[in-house]
Structures are given as C-alpha cells and as structure tokens.
C-alpha cells in the first residue's frame, strides 16, 4: 500500500517536470513584458503538430525534429512579438490579452481544420517503454525521468542566461523599467522580441517532451495554458526555480487526486492552486 502512494508521489513529481517545461516560457514572457500570452498552450500544441508532421512525413527521429524546430521557434516568437504583439503592447494590457486570445482560437480551429479532432501522439520508441527500477516495487519511466532532468536543465540554463550574460542583464533592465531602458538606448522593442523568442524556444522543448509523453488534440492548448499559469502563480511570478516547485506541487496534487477518480485529477490541481492563491498570493518562491 505504501509503495502505491510512493509511486504516485514519484509520478507526480516527474509530471511536475513536464509542467515546469510548460511554465518557464510563460513565466519569462510574463516577467519581462507584464502580459500573459493566452495562446501559450496553443503554441505548444501547434508545435506538437509540427513535430508530428516532421516525424511522420519526413521520418525524422523526434529528438532531431525537436532540435530542428527550436531555432525556427525562436524566430517565430521574435517575429510574433516584433510585428504583431508589439503593436498593442504598452498602452493597454487589455489589447494584448485580446490579441493573444484571438490567436489561441485561430490556432485551435486551424488545427481542427487541418488535422481533425482525433488525438495524436508521437512514438518515442524504446525511450518511452524503458523503466528505471527504484527497488521496493517502485518503477518510474525512463522518459519521465529524462523529462524531469530536462526541466531542471532548462531552468538552470535560463537562470544562467538571465543572471550571467549581457543580454540577460538587458532583458532584466527592460523588465525593471521599460521607459528608462529606452531613455539610455536599450531598444525595448528588440529585447521584448528576444524575450519572446526565448519563450518560444521553451515552447519547442515543452512540445518535444509533451508529444511523446501524452496524447494531444487541437483542443489541448487551453489545458496546457491553465497548467502553465497555475505553475507560474504558485511558484511566484517571475521566479524560474519557483516554476519547478510549482510544477511539482501541481503534478503531485493531480497524481494523488487521480488515485481517486479521473475527474478528481484535474480538480485536485485547480483546488490546490486556489488554496495556494488564497494563502500565499505572492507564490511559494516570490522573486520580487
């Protein structure tokens, strides 16, 4: 009995790694630009479909396909911010919310037109089926462990980028005071675009792992957005390592909830989020 619960707990923690992958890009973009890309989850799902096409039609290995997609994702995010979102940024957050909301609906229905409503999945081959035995009857999937490691590495890499590089300092400067940045010749327009580009690289990585971990369909985006959002708020706005913690809290809540009933899996996640929001609105690891 104990091993069952330990198993669920472990599964939940590893699921938290996937959720942290969903959240880091959202956290970065929200921290720097002070708005939330409502289409974040839909872009993850859209990238899953891009990977699906690359792996099925071109026969590429999923890892290779993901690596090919990452630079394209950066350019896409850069361009999206530079040429669309930048036009409505600044004067009123409402407009950015509405534009990304519009994008979200366009992506969902575009995917529905193009691929139909059937759930899809990318096969990870042996990676998916291999397990790691931890003794005492507890086994975890190798792929789940790799996903968690990837999440830790991604958070560490973003942390280094933001706090140990020149471009990171510039991004943090724009996040601190965008008008002051413009006054001294730091181009906030370009830095916003770079931040969004980086956010989209994390979307590409998240999609790479999600497309093998679980089924996806055109309507999967909003769920991913809500997960990413809950993780970001629980972790503490703008806190990268907090996102990892928030992901684990949500993953464990869902995993334990799922023990009772499949509907409780999602509900338990939302309820834990609301409890954290009620008791600690600044999040578990507030940055600012």
């Amino acid at each position: 009995m104990a091993s069952l619960w330990i198993n669920q707990l472990l599964q939940g923690i590893l699921l938290g790694g996937l959720y942290a992958l969903f959240a880091t890009g959202l956290s970065l973009a929200a921290g720097v630009m002070r708005f939330i890309n409502i289409a974040h989850g839909d872009f993850i799902v859209l990238t899953c479909y891009v990977l699906l096409v690359l792996t099925t039609t071109l026969g590429l290995n999923p890892v290779v396909a993901t690596l090919i997609v990452l630079p394209a994702a950066f350019l896409f995010g850069f361009g999206l911010q530079r040429f669309l979102l930048q036009r409505v940024v600044g004067e009123n957050v409402l407009l950015v919310i509405l534009v990304t909301f519009g994008l979200s609906i366009i992506i969902e229905n575009g995917l529905l037109e193009g691929f139909g409503a059937d759930p899809q999945k990318i096969s990870g081959g042996w990676l998916e089926t291999a397990t790691v035995a931890l003794g005492a009857g507890v086994n975890v999937g190798l792929f789940q462990v790799l996903t968690f490691i990837a999440a830790v590495l991604l958070v560490a890499a973003l942390d280094l980028l933001l706090y140990r590089t020149g471009i990171g300092a510039k991004i943090r400067a724009v996040s601190d005071d965008v008008a002051a940045a413009d006054l001294i010749g730091l181009s906030s327009v370009r830095l916003y675009a770079i931040a969004m580009g980086i956010s989209f690289v994390t979307i590409g990585i998240a999609a790479g792992f999600m497309s093998i971990w679980t089924n996806f369909d055109p309507a999967s985006g909003p769920t991913r957005l809500l997960i990413a959002f809950e993780v970001v708020v629980m972790g503490g706005l703008g806190s990268l390592w907090g996102s990892l913690a928030g992901g684990i809290v949500l993953g464990v809540a869902q995993s334990i909830g799922g023990q009772f009933d499949i509907a409780w899996q999602t509900m338990a996640g939302h309820i834990v989020f609301l409890i954290v929001l009620a008791l600690r609105p600044q999040g578990l690891f507030p940055k600012y």
């Binding site: 300092a169 005071d177 008008a179």
Partner: peptide
C-alpha cells in the same frame, strides 16, 4: 532611472 534589481556593476 537606474534598474533597481540589477547590481551597480550591471547598471
């Protein structure tokens, strides 16, 4: 108009 969360050196 310094960037308060950046260090002196970073500014």
């Amino acid at each position: 108009r310094l960037f308060p969360s950046l260090t002196v050196e970073e500014n």
